[in-house]
Every structure is written in C-alpha cells, then in structure tokens.
Design a protein around this nucleic acid. Structure first.
Lengths: 235, 235
DNA sequence: GCCTGTGAAGGATTTCACAGCC
DNA sequence: GGCTGTGAAATCCTTCACAGGC
C-alpha cells in the first residue's frame, strides 16, 4: 500500500522525499554547506567517516542520512562530492531563489538586510516593512522599505512565500498574522516570543539568548575539570 | 547504586537536575521567558493546558517537563507562577550574570553588542576582539574592543566562561581555539561552519539561513492548499 | 467536576553490527 | 584490507491514559 510494489524505477530513482525524517532535514543545510565548501577546495570524493569528522557526526549517521536520497555512495570508495552536492541542493530547493520579505527595520532588521548570506544562499529580500517609518529612508541595503500598513496590498500584488520577523516582541504576533494573511507560508522569527500560526505555516525561531541560557544550565553544573589544573602550564 | 537508597530529603527536594533530558533543557528558556511575562501581567496561577496554549505545547508535555523540577503544581488548581519562575530561574543559573566575550566586531558583532537582550538576560559583554582593528574605535556600545592577538592575555587576567563568535567563516575555528585555550567553556557560534571543540566545551550554532533552507525543503513539497482559493474573499 | 504527576505505550532517532561489494 | 547500506537494538522523546487529590 505504501510504495511497496513498484516498477523498475524509471529515473535514477527519485526517492520518497516526503518521508525524510525531520532530524535529517535539519541537518541537510549543514551537509549542503560542507559539500559546497569541499567542492570549492577541489575535493571530488569523500568517505562517510571523513564527512563525519568535518561535521562532528558519526559515520553511521552520515550514511543513514544520505541513504534517504538514494544509493549515492560507492562501496569501498565513498561518495562523489559533486553528485552529492547536486542531489542535496535539489532536495533543499536551492538553485532557485525565494522572494523574502522582512518585518521590522530596527537595528536587527538592518543587520539582516546588510547580511549577504541570505542573498547568496537564495533568500532575496524584496521588501521590508516597519511601523515607525522615518520618512526619507526609502530603502536600506538596496531593499525598499514600506509602512507596515501596506503589507497586505504589497503581498497581493507581489506574493512572497517566506518572511523574516524582526520586530519587537509585543508586535511579533501582529506582524506574523499580517504575513500569514498575505500568503506567507514560512516565517523565521527573531522575536523572543512564541508566535502562533495556522496549520500548514512553518515557523523557526532564532533565539541566541535562549541558546546561551541553555548552555548556562549545563555550566552551573559542570565541574570544569580541564580548567582547574594548569595542565601544560601557561602555554 | 544510582541514587536508589536515600534519606528523607533534607531540603524541599533538590531534584537530580543532572538527569534532566536535553530536550527539556532546550525548552527551559522558553518556559522561563513565558513565566516572567505572565508574572509581569499580574497572573499568579496557571494550568498546564493554558501554559501549553501560550507555548504551543501539549499539556502532558508541560506537566512532564515541569515534573523534573519537583512537585510544583497543585492538583485541581495548577501551578503557582512565581514559584515556577523562581525554580526554573535557579535551574538555569539566571539571577546571576555571566561574563561574556565577543570575537568579531563586524556588522553582525556590532548588532550583537547593541542588542540589549543579552545584557538584560544575564549575559554581559565585558570585551570584544577583532583582527582588523581600526585604531580609534576603542569601544562599541560601551564594550571595549581589543586586538584578537591580546585575547589570551585578556582571559588570563579576567576569565570568562562564555563567548560569542561572530567572525567570518574562515576565522571561526581559529577564534574558537583561542577562546577555548583561554578557558571559555561555552560558545555561541554565528559563523556558518561547524567548529570543533574538545570534550566538555559546549557549542550552539545560530544559523538563520540554515533554518530558512530547512523550511524551504518543506515548501517545495507542500501543496499550499489554503492559499489557492480566496476563502473569505479579500479581507 | 477538573487538575496534576506518572507508569506504560508509542514514535522517533541514533547506534550497533554485519552482509555484501570492491 | 576498507567501504557502504541497512536490519536490529538501544536510546531518547512524546503521547496516552489513568490513579490520586481537591
């Protein structure tokens, strides 16, 4: 019933990508990035234990993760890097670009617009929105800035599927609602609050302070052995 | 053998916090933040299903998570918010501050220093470091800036346990090594590379583009039912 | 009635271990 | 010999379901 009986595979086997575990999907961008970097360095082949070393993953995990995308490795040899890179890029929807809008043009929002990483990796900011709009600043880092009130109209005229929220916490839910109403289906939320979205809309949170607090939890308990004794003296 | 036979608990039961599951620790900052906010709003009591609604978690999960920190709820009533907040704050090591250093004072680094969230939540930047140092800019957002070469000496004189890495990708490993050698035990890495640290040192990565790519993986597959039809017309 | 705390079940993820191949 | 791909085991996490208390 579930992909059981099948023909002899018409193509080089487009796997059932719908069933890739979430934990694997989370790691895909990391693989993709490492592979692109290795390709640039001129490497052409890599074994699972080498890739594991680069990414701090166990070789079995690397093999299992990659196996969801086909029989990409050669027994006794390893994986062809450019083939791997291509396969994962396709799976991730790289190689195209995504129209992306930004809500909130404060310090944080400006830093986001100035960060070339987004554009380089396929997320193109096509517009930014803010409530407190100083007249005159019509564009920042080349991205046009509009009043938040105009968001709905803007998205109706030129839709975007992805948005970044960088407004103050109290405005985050309202901004999210406006974006979702406008048809945005994936939101990257920098505001330190949990925003609510209808089913089918994706949210990921960027919360550096939460990550620090998480580590602090372990720090207050860790004995810190290594540090105590001078080991190899000063160095 | 493992905490089996014990006495009648001398104190109000300091639980075995070492055995809190990692998944729970990850959520603790979220709980702490929500509780602080609820406390400010004047709420004094909350039920697991209410807290779950606020945080988009199932009530059973909320109860299980909180149960690692003692019998904090009252049957038929709910949880005392200020007691909960206090307990979790203690567990997270809040209520103290952490000396934090920053490596990398580019656009991103400056945005981090300007972000009050870090200071407000207990992470105080005591120094920042950069290779390409324009003479004159001795301090940014009130934080003194030094040459990266002086990092080791600085940490010997005034140690810090936590560091934030915001240097370009190629420099991230070197910066990390220097920090670890200086005694830093937890690193928040903004560089889009996997950095390697010795056992006992914690690392968390902030990688917004990876989060976007992860969502893109699902977007290229999702049918986007809701959007297609105008539902309730324009609105 | 409604609520918490928690065994038990269920699901998801990681790791082990090895068959098969070069 | 070394390597991949993958059943099977082990581990971790979430959800179910209910006992016990107000």
């Amino acid at each position: 019933m579930k992909g059981g009986e099948r023909f002899i595979d018409p193509l080089p086997q487009k796997f059932d990508l719908a069933s890739v575990p979430a934990a694997v999907v989370e790691r895909l961008p990391i693989y993709a990035r490492a592979l692109a970097s290795l390709e640039e360095q001129g490497c052409s082949c890599i074994k699972s234990h080498e890739l594991g070393e680069v990414l701090s993953l166990h070789p079995e995990q690397v093999r299992r993760d990659l196996s969801y995308f086909g029989h990409l490795g050669k027994t006794g040899v390893g994986y062809d890097i450019s083939r791997l890179a291509t396969t994962l890029s396709e799976a991730l929807g790289l190689g195209r670009h995504w129209r992306t809008v930004l809500a909130g043009v404060g310090n944080l929002g400006r830093a986001i617009l100035a960060n070339k990483e987004f554009h380089d990796r396929g997320f193109w900011f096509v517009a930014a929105f803010d409530t407190a709009l100083k007249p005159g600043a019509a564009s920042i880092s080349g991205v046009p800035v509009f009043a938040l009130a105009g968001l709905a109209r803007y998205l109706r005229a030129s839709p975007a599927e992805i948005a970044v929220v960088a407004v103050p916490p109290v405005q985050a839910q309202a901004a999210t609602d406006a974006l979702v109403n406008g048809g945005v289906r994936a939101i990257l939320n920098y505001a330190p609050v949990v925003v609510h979205v209808p089913e089918g809309v994706l949210v990921r949170n960027i919360d550096p302070v939460a990550s620090l607090q998480e580590m602090a939890f372990y720090l207050v308990r860790a004995p810190s052995e290594e540090m105590a004794q001078p080991a190899l003296a000063t160095s």
